[in-house]
Amino acid sequence: MNATVFAPWVDPDEKPLIRFQNVTKRFGDFTAIDDLSLDIFEKEFFALLGPSGCGKTTMMRMLAGFESPSAGRIELAGQNIAPVPPNKRAVNMMFQSYALFPHLSVWDNIAFGLRRDNLPKHDIQDRVEEMLKLTRLEKFARRKPHQISGGQRQRVALARSLAKAPKLLLLDEPLGALDKKLRQDTQFELMDIQETTGTTFVIVTHDQEEAMTVASRIAVMDEGKLMQVATPDEIYEAPATVYIADFIGDVNIIEGRARATGENQYQIDWAEGQQPLIASSTRSFSNDQTCHLAIRPEKVAISSERPENAANVLQGTVHDIAYLGNLSTYHVKLPNGHMIKAQTANTRRIARRSFTWEDTVWLSWTATAGVLLES
């Protein structure tokens, strides 16, 4: 799905498939969801992302019908779904545990919901075969769940969830039980299946990488509130708050005081005895306002010579090195004790590192490389 073409959320005439309107959910004195409004559109692969206890699973359970909102309204395709019981909603849910029937074959697991709906035999046959093909499980059709791998069980659960052609599929940490390599492969399979079926997927995850990989948009949540709803690249490159910058990916956050030096240009006084930093920002800051400069390690250049003409230049010593195969991350300690991370891509096989522990190095970045955020 081409992201430049598929963006129903920017079209004011598009009607959302799901609409949360001022939804609050309380459990006794605890507020799990706090006056939350959100639109999700048809054919989106939408991610609810946040730490444990942020309210993302509660939102999913309300969509599925396992919980009712304490206040507010949830609509599916323009209809209030509060009075509709879970089994009558055009919504299916795939659980983290997969919840497959151990005594049934893969084929019968997928057919289970269709048989409950008393569909004609040939329709069930056709639909199950279609699902087996979609999830590439044809040759495992007669096996029981314990005779196949974790990744295959995950695909059976997905096929069973999609068999009834729901308008909306909810996925609760669906890849949590898989190892890293299999999880990455399965993420792309999920995206392909979602694109092929055109079903709207809403995934709950606490894994930032997973959300960034699969989702058309991400809602970052904390303590029952939406912190930012945007595309993965917007959330990474233009986080709305320090919390989001820190939550998504790796980041350096430098606190200081802003001073305007021109249109959208600021000088940041941040440490005694250090040159002010220079940053561009379309957000406006008053003079001496506390601000935070968030800058990703890959946007910080590291060199043994002082760079010419760079907007921001700092000197420090290499304190730590993390070698991740494709990347090396250098933790550089500044004279005032502040630590800055710089990342370089390992494009060639390295016989010898350019920098090693205790080396004196120069860090530099442009005025537009970081994002200036309010405290």
Rank of each mutant, 00 (worst) to 15 (best):
S70Q: 04
N2W: 02
V229H: 12
P239D: 02
Y236D: 04
L132P: 11
L49R: 09
L277P: 08
T347E: 09
I302L: 07
A177I: 00
F188H: 12
N287H: 09
D108E: 14
A238L: 10
P232T: 08
V313D: 01
P145L: 07
H331Q: 11
Q21N: 14
S364F: 03
E237T: 08
E189M: 04
G78P: 09
V229Q: 12
Q184N: 13
G113A: 12
Q315I: 09
W270H: 13
H292W: 03
L277A: 10
Q152P: 04
D34K: 13
W357N: 13
V156P: 00
N80P: 04
Q228N: 10
V23A: 12
R73N: 11
N109T: 03
A369D: 14
Y266I: 01
Y98T: 05
A3W: 01
A260N: 07
K56L: 06
F66H: 09
P12H: 09
F95L: 10
V242Y: 01
M93I: 15
K333E: 12
K333S: 11
L100R: 02
D35M: 00
D269N: 14
A32H: 11
V106A: 08
V220A: 08
P307Q: 08
A215L: 06
A258S: 10
E255K: 11
I33F: 10
R143N: 08
